[in-house]
Design a protein around this nucleic acid. Sequence first.
RNA 1: GCCGGAGUGGCGGAAUGGCAGACGCGCCGGACUCAAAAUCCGGUCCUCGCAAGAGGGUGUGGGUUCAACUCCCACCUCCGGCACCA
Length: 921
Amino acid sequence: MPRYLPAEIEPKWQQHWETNRVFAAPRLPKGKKLYVLDMFPYPSGDGLHVGHPEGYTATDIVARYHRMRGYSVMHPMGWDAFGLPAEQHAKKTGAHPRATTEKNIANFRRQLKMLGFSYDWQRELATTDVDYFRWTQFIFLVLYDTWFDPQQQRGRPIAELAIPAEVAAQGGAAVARFRDEHRLAYQLEAPVNWCPALGTVLANEEVVGGLSERGGHPVVRIPLRQWMLRITAYADRLESDLDGLDWPESIKLLQRNWIGRSTGAEVDFFIGVDRPIGEADLLPHQPGHPDSAAPASGLPDTVAAGRRPQPAVRAAFEQWSAARKAAGYPKRPGGEVLRIYTTRPDTLFGATYMVIAPEHPFVPRLTAPEQAAAVKAYCQAASRKSDLDRTDLAKDKTGVFTGSYAVNPVNGQAIPIWVADYVLISYGTGAIMAVPAHDTRDFEFAREFGLPIVPVVDPGPSGGEAREKLLRCEAAFIADGQAINSGDYTGMPTAQFKQRITADLAGAGVARAAVNYKLRDWLFSRQHFWGEPFPLLHELDAAGQPTGVVVALEPGDLPVDLPAAMTFDARHDSPEPPLEKAPADWLFVERNGKRYKRETNTMPQWAGSCWYYLRFLDPKNTQALVDREVERAWMPVDLYVGGAEHAVLHLLYARFWHKVLYDRGYVGTPEPFQRLVNLGMILGEKNEKMGKSRGNVVNPDDVVRRHGADSLRLYEMFMGPLEATKPWSADGVAGVRGFLDRAWRMIVDERSESMQLNEAVVDCPPTAAQNRVLHRTIKAVTKDIESLSFNTAIARMMEFTNFFLRESQRPRRAMERFVLLLAPMAPHIAEELWAALGRRQTLAYEPWPEYDESLIKEETIEVPIQVNGKLRGKVSLPAEADNAAIEAAAKADARVAEWLAGKTVVKTIVVPGRLINFVVK
RNA sequence: GCCGGAGUGGCGGAAUGGCAGACGCGCCGGACUCAAAAUCCGGUCCUCGCAAGAGGGUGUGGGUUCAACUCCCACCUCCGGCACCA
């Protein structure tokens, strides 16, 4: 077999690795450990695309390199196998999703083995395995059994939740309800996008203008009982623990923005004791009066702001204020206040109106009779809009006046309360104070409805154009500045003002510092069949109706398997979960004389991927999700590689679960993934996305058939930096194949029938030049692998072959070193060459080559000579030449001398070994 | 709109503030061949020049420096994320 024939050598070595279990990881690491993890794939029916091997090759190189470095390496692979495609296929063809899934997994497994990745296949798992998802269900039970203690900032067993006396007094049902309200897993009646024509619930992104994105069918918002996970409880820790992670800053930032922590204050505005404050409770509007702040510039004065309340209302406000000061800031405000959240308490004096969300519980109470019809119509219209509609229409602000007023605690002035859908019920308190002079949205709204704009922050003399625009009421000024029109606080800089007024109002019992997050609780249930069933039972009464009591199964009751006998209805036409149609012997459970119905929602696909990295460590354990000692020894994951599309969801969900498991003692590290590397996308040859519809998908099977797995691996690493988005090139693969051909010829005699070394490969000591190339290559490749710069590592190896192919004597020892360097990236050809060089066993555990710095040193160096920063010549010198010698040699150079002639050398800069620069005049 | 990232030959890309374009693709020329493929050798940033050489050149404009792809300021374009979060 003289020529390089990947089709023959690759399967041979794959077989060798498998039968000898070459890459089996030990139960516990011996010495230094490295856990290298890929984001496991969803085994789709299309098989692998060329994007998959990019990350898998990168981690494989790292894994193989570290084995040669003496590390115990954990490098597993599995399948994220639940998901909608298999279920949709079932609806179309009647094939059970499990059958489809197993077929797809078999194909993926074949393809990955074909690429020669050094996975420990003994640890393979699929999220759809009953033995796997029983532990997913187990973790759900842990979540269900946990509450978050805000004092200790950690999850604790629900049994440790202190029950307030007044709750305990109401009996067992009240206690159970109290506990349910604190669990990390809880039920919520939440609106979903239901599309009757498609027979499915749609995500917000799939609904455009009230119609389904696909097909354009009507979508209705219907309330549906859902399971939620209280990820918001961990928002603070999920954000602050990012600091210690070796992740790309851009990904950390994405997560920070997603969590969206903001600090500010909650402030209570007085809205009247028995009834809302209306028009009749205010003194008439008096233009020019200081308490009747006139709208600035020429805006229409349709609704007065900053009006003085009638003495009776003022008295009620004073009384309320005094009572508040004595009682402090209550946890749940009474009906007499409207609580708002603001990040700019320093702009309280500029609040000219208030806005509450259409879903705010105070809407009915605050609506004056004369505004009732308008408010009702507005709220109804808002409820029909999907979230997407509401954001889409962001440009045109809409709203309606309630007819009621609130009293600003800082100055006792009454300002109107509006309803508008630019305020979201799900954020903060669902109500805001509007400061149009210093908030863009409030500014637009005020413009739309002719509400007054009162500047209270001066941008300062350097404010320039922004200041002019603000004072002419042409734009809001968002940034910090100095307070104006703000009573005693006037003159204060923004940051100081914020602190002072928050403290002052807190002392008065009407405000407190507050933190808010954009992050929402995680909607954790799906109306699908092909997902993990919840380990929960709903109690039924004698009539077979749910009593509302939920019973969690015991760990010993697990797993809850999916019913094997299911028929899949192509025209499933209700929002109820498919499992509602499961056989009765699955659906109903008798226990202790009571009847129960199983929870028929299933978990989302994210569930299985939240903890698979733990199960890989101990995949066959029947007693625990992972053995404690094993987990402590291997975790955390040292390198996690995958696509940037998982920057927020998967990577946030997994961190959340991990923290809960950490709090409850199941794992020993607070974070699962110490180092993260994101992959760029691989595009088509013409720089466009690959896709079936474009017909530009490159199938790894074809590439391997044509050039072999090593060429595919090497090419994907040679394309460019891992994180970069880069286009595929068939010529590029051929080019890398050419390199392997040349490397083969460098060592093997192609003309011989049997496996013979090239006659140039001889047992002789390397020349100084050969040593320089060899050791320089070892050094560079080592450094590049450590920094995951595989493209330059390969370039260095190409230089090595380019050099040695010209050498008529190729020292065997140098060839061996080279083969070892090549091995992590192109393992099949490396094994074959290793054998050709007379080595018996696999090179997978051969020590990584060391380099000798002293052999790299050149005897002579070429020093570039610059005159005024421009290259004017070069001079060859002994490597040890000192600065004076370099300068002398440079001046002696004929061309340089010409450039220096007649000029004065002002300065001479010598960078030893680098260059010399003459600055002349 | 806001927040990130990136702009270097025909293409993918390389360069601790120190010779811009390593390595590969493509292209051009040559060797071998009846011929082609494969392989090997040489060339390949642009302009002027027979050449030696000179000038220009890392999205645009400015700045710091003996020296800038690299650092600073402003702008342009492309890609990604978020999108009324008060």
